[in-house]
Structures are given as C-alpha cells and as structure tokens.
Amino acid sequence: MDTTSPLISVDELVRALDGSQPPVLLDIRWQLGGPPGAQEYAAGHLPGAHYLDLDRELAAPPGPAGRHPLPDPEVLAAALRRAGVRGDRPVVVYDAGPATSAARAWWLLRWAGHPDVRVLDGGLAAWRSAGRPESTDTPPAGEGDFKPRPGRLPTVDADGAAALAREGLLLDARAAERYRGEVEPVDPRAGHIPGAVSAPTTENLGPDGRFRPVVELDRRFRELGADEQRVGVYCGSGVTAAHQALALAVTGRSAVLYPGSWSEWSADPARPAATGAERG
C-alpha cells in the first residue's frame, strides 16, 4: 500500500483491500457527548473492520493528566491484538467523517511505532457516498502481534507547551470561540494557553468533509508561521490536536503534541489563562 500520504481515499482503499496484503481496518467512531461509537458501529461499518473504543482503549481514565491521557501501553496492545493489528501489515483507521477520532488512532499507532498507518479521508461518509457496501457483522477477534513502543512521536507536558507558546508556535485546535474564552462547555476554565495561536481543525477540511488540497493546507500552515519555528499542537483533551498533527503531516510537517491539553492546563489554578483573539 502506498504510504506517501497519511491519508487514503475510498478508491485507494478499495484497491488495497483487493491486494495481496490488505490493510487492517479500525473503526474509531466517537464524539463528545455521544452517541456511543459502539452502537453506530453495530448499525453498519466497513466490512471486516474492528471497533476500538476511544475512551477505554485509546486513552487512560480521566484524571489530573486530562480527559484523555495517553493509554497504558498494555491496554493499547491488547486492543490492537484483538483487532488483528500486526507490525508487518498496513492499518487504515476511520470514523464518521471529520477524522477527529481517527486521527487520534493514527497518532497513537505512529507514537507506538507502527510504520504504516493511514486515515480514510472523509471517513464512513465518503465510503457511503461512493456507494460502497457496509456490514453489521462483527469479525472474530484477530491474532495481532503488534507490540507498542511508546515515544516514537514527540510529546510535551504543560511546561513544554508553555515554552513552545513563548519560543515557538503552539497551535490551539479548538473552536475559535473556545480559544477566545467566550464559551467553555467541558473544562474548568475558559481561555487558552498564553502565547498560543488559534487554528481550528475545522479549517483543515473542505465542505465535503475531506481534507483540503495539500496546496491549501500548506498555505494555511505557512501563514500561521509553521515554517519558521518548532510547532506544537493542543486542544481540549489531546484528541482534536491529533487532527492538527495529521493535517500538518499531510503537508510534510511534523508537530509536538501536548496530550493533557486544555483539560489538564485549565484544571491547574497555577496555570494562567489568556482570553481574546490575539496571541498572548
């Protein structure tokens, strides 16, 4: 399977599934506040896909490290083995469409050392739009052999995120109104990390729910200053930030992820919160 891009189109995936080494398919449907992804998976999914639970298998329990801390490597390993993930076989992850939760799985697998992971561009919505078949059958547990080796992608803690905001470029992937501090539906305080720059992930996508062309994404990140300094990404709990990292990767750029993100930062009263539209 061609891995020149971290994204794969429906047509490319169909060809890959017909090839000599078809990819393992992982369904990562999840959204804040529900409905539960497992129910949506049961109602219809890509044939042969295994479902992974973002809250339980792709994150540790919420706590001082945020709402979606990085998972225990053993928990992650067990989930990937059950899904049939192997170190020598490609993996394609997808969600309902915007690629937010799929990006979390992509980032985690790359962080854990898997060499060949791609995200279905447009997700299940694109698959359905192309008239491709779905299944309600749950495949039997796989016999994967992949062993996570955490740390293959860089991360920072709260101090590191603060330093990046001062000395580099820290992109806030949340909606602009949350960055400005006008609303905060989930976390303890409104606002953003001082010095961070607003860069909502919704602007990575076109009207059809697919990622914008590379030339447009490249221009977006260049205008944000991503070519001139070390880039970090954060969001509410480290999920949407992975979408930003994925969009950057589409353009050939790399990013450091702050897993605790605003859910960790805002829970610490010693950490300052900035508001308004300007960087600061």
Score class of each variant (00 low, 15 high):
Val214Arg: 15
Arg149Met: 02
Tyr51Lys: 05
Asp53Ile: 04
His192Arg: 15
Val231His: 10
His192Lys: 14
Pro188Met: 03
Glu177Trp: 11
Asp18Asn: 10
Lys147Pro: 00
Arg212His: 11
Arg82Gly: 06
Glu216Ala: 14
Glu182Pro: 05
Arg212Asn: 10
Ala96Lys: 01
Val214Asp: 06
Ala60Arg: 01
Thr3Trp: 12
Pro47Asn: 07
Gly236Trp: 02
Pro98Tyr: 01
Gly142Gln: 09
Trp111Asn: 02
Gly131Asn: 08
Arg56His: 13
Tyr258Pro: 11
Asp137Ile: 06
Leu70Phe: 06
Thr4Ala: 15
Gly87Ile: 01
Arg104Ala: 03
Ala255Cys: 01
Thr3Pro: 07
Ala65Leu: 15
Thr4Trp: 08
Ala60Gln: 02
Ala277Asn: 07
Gly33Trp: 13
Leu257Lys: 09
Leu169His: 00
Gly195Cys: 13
Ala241Cys: 12
Trp127Gly: 04
Arg86Trp: 03
Val10Arg: 03
Ile8Lys: 08
Gly34Tyr: 05
Phe221Trp: 08
Leu164Gln: 11
His45Asp: 10
Glu223Asn: 15
Glu143Gln: 15
Gly33His: 14
Leu246Asn: 05
Ser263Val: 05
Ala199Ile: 01
Ala105Asn: 09
Asp121Gly: 12
Asp116Leu: 14
Gly19Phe: 04
Arg104Gln: 04
Arg222Cys: 11
Val14Ala: 12
Asp121Pro: 10
Arg67Pro: 00
Thr201Tyr: 15
Ala60Pro: 00
Ala196Pro: 07
Asp157Arg: 07
Val233His: 04
Ala173His: 08
Ala83Cys: 13
Arg271Glu: 14
Glu184Trp: 08
